[in-house]
Design a binder for these strands. Structure first.
Length: 266
DNA sequence: ATGCCGTATGATATACGA
C-alpha cells in the first residue's frame, strides 16, 4: 500500500491556465491529474510543460475550442475503453487502468444549455442522454470486485447543500430534479460512493464552482458542487482524504472551477 | 443569478459555459 493522490480540475482552457496548473501541481503534488475543458487540439497541447511537472505518462483527447479531457500520471497505465458517447466524438471521456488494476474514468458531462426542457433545448436533451448512457455503460460492466474511480465535471449539483440556494436553483440547469434523477441512476448503476460527501456529509455546503458573473465570489459564495469523485465499493476502504482547493479560484484570471484532491491508500 | 464574466475563433461579433 502506498499513497495515491488524485486531482480533478476543470481548467477552462489548459493553455490559458497553464501557469495555474503548474503552481497547483507544485503545491499539491498529485500522482494523477485529470483535466476537463482543455479546449485545445492534441497537436497544440502544451505537453512539454506537463513533462516538466513530473508526469511521465499521459493521455489526451481534445478538439478545437470546446470540451477536451486529459489525464497525466506519474504511474504507468494502459488506456482503457472509451465509447462514443451519444454517437459524438466530442472528447468528453478518457479511461486509464493503473498497474494495480484500478481504472480511472475522467468525464466532462455536457453543460446542458440554458433551458431545462428537452423539447426546446437540444443541449439539455444531450446532457440527459449522456447521463443515461453512463448509467447503461457502468451497469453493463458492473462486478462486485471492480475497482473503478470516476471523476470529472459532471455538471450536476445533486444535493440541496450542493448549491448556495436550493429553492432558487430548482429550475436552473445543473440542479433540476430531472438531472438529479439521471445522476441518481448513474450512482445506482455501480453502487458508486460519492467520495466528496463521504468526507463532508450533508448538510454542510460543498461547492467546487463559482460563476465568473458573480462578483465577490468568495464573500457571496454562490457556488455549486459540479465536480465529483466517485469510487466503486471495493475502493471505499482505500479512501484517506478529500479537499476542495479554493485557492486557485482566487488567483488572477482563474478557472471558474476549483481543483478537488483525493488521497487513496493504493 | 436571468445579470455586468471568460475563453475560443479564419474574431472587432458570436458560440458556449451553467
Amino acid at each position: 500500500m502506498s499513497n495515491l493522490r488524485l486531482v480533478t480540475w476543470n481548467v477552462n482552457s489548459v493553455r490559458a491556465r497553464l501557469g495555474h496548473v503548474e503552481q497547483f501541481v507544485k503545491e499539491a503534488s498529485p500522482d494523477i491529474l485529470c483535466l476537463q475543458e482543455t479546449k485545445v487540439m492534441d497537436n497544440e497541447f502544451p505537453l512539454k510543460a506537463f513533462e516538466k511537472m513530473g508526469f511521465a505518462h499521459h493521455v489526451i483527447a481534445g478538439q478545437k475550442s470546446y470540451n477536451g479531457v486529459a489525464i497525466f500520471s506519474k504511474r504507468p497505465f494502459t488506456q482503457g475503453e472509451a465509447p462514443l458517447w451519444c454517437g459524438k466524438d466530442d472528447k468528453r471521456h478518457l479511461a486509464i487502468t493503473l498497474e494495480n488494476g484500478v481504472e480511472i474514468n475522467n468525464f466532462y458531462v455536457p453543460a446542458g444549455g440554458d433551458v431545462p426542457d428537452v423539447a426546446v433545448n437540444d443541449k439539455f436533451a444531450h446532457k440527459l442522454d449522456f447521463m443515461t448512457e453512463m448509467t447503461d455503460w457502468f451497469a453493463k460492466r458492473k462486478h462486485k470486485d471492480n475497482r473503478l474511480i470516476l471523476v470529472g465535471d459532471l455538471n450536476v449539483a445533486p444535493f440541496e447543500s450542493d448549491v448556495w440556494n436550493h429553492k432558487q436553483l430548482l429550475k436552473v440547469v445543473s440542479h433540476t430534479p430531472i438531472e438529479v434523477e439521471h445522476m441518481d441512476r448513474i450512482y445506482a448503476s455501480h453502487d458508486w460512493v460519492d467520495v466528496m460527501r463521504h468526507f463532508t456529509p450533508e448538510p454542510e455546503p460543498l461547492f467546487s464552482w463559482w460563476s465568473y458573473r458573480s462578483p465577490n465570489w468568495e464573500v457571496a459564495d454562490k457556488g455549486r458542487r459540479l465536480d465529483h469523485v466517485w469510487v466503486t465499493p471495493a475502493l471505499k476502504p482505500h479512501l484517506s482524504a478529500m479537499s476542495i482547493h479554493k485557492g486557485p479560484r482566487g488567483w488572477e484570471k482563474p478557472s471558474d472551477h476549483a481543483p478537488v484532491v483525493v488521497d487513496f491508500d493504493l
